[in-house]
């Protein structure tokens, strides 16, 4: 949900959406922390896997498994520990919507 409001605000045309525009919530800019490795918006064809358009539940479960150490990795287990569970939910939601 958060993402939706944010994107609406970003477009600068939130007013056109409905008679009562949703309150502007900031765009979750931190999603771009993943772009330098996984490609802009999570799109890449490389050894580092693409994350754009993957199932939301898979992304969330995987990130949480990296975070709690139950999923092995070279680097994601260390990076995932920097994000709260709420932020992980935003990341999973955001990337699941990219194509």
């Amino acid at each position: 949900m958060k993402t939706f409001f944010a994107l609406a605000g970003l477009l600068g045309c939130a007013g056109a959406l409905a008679a009562e525009p949703p309150p502007a919530a900031p765009f979750p800019y931190f999603v771009a922390n993943c772009f330098n490795c996984h490609g802009t918006e999570g799109n890449t064809k490389s050894a580092i896997p693409a994350i754009a358009g993957r199932e939301r539940a898979y992304l969330e479960a995987t990130l949480k498994a990296f975070k709690d150490g139950s999923k092995q990795a070279t680097i994601m287990h260390q990076l995932a520990k920097g994000y709260t569970d709420e932020e992980i939910a935003v990341l999973a939601d955001y990337f699941s919507r990219q194509r």
């Binding site: 490795c37 490609g39 802009t40 050894a47």
Partner: peptide, 14 residues
């Protein structure tokens, strides 16, 4: 090593 080369390509593109 493979991730390093992927990182380089992906960040240049980003």
């Amino acid at each position: 090593g493979l991730f390093t080369r992927a990182w380089a390509r992906n960040i240049w593109s980003d």
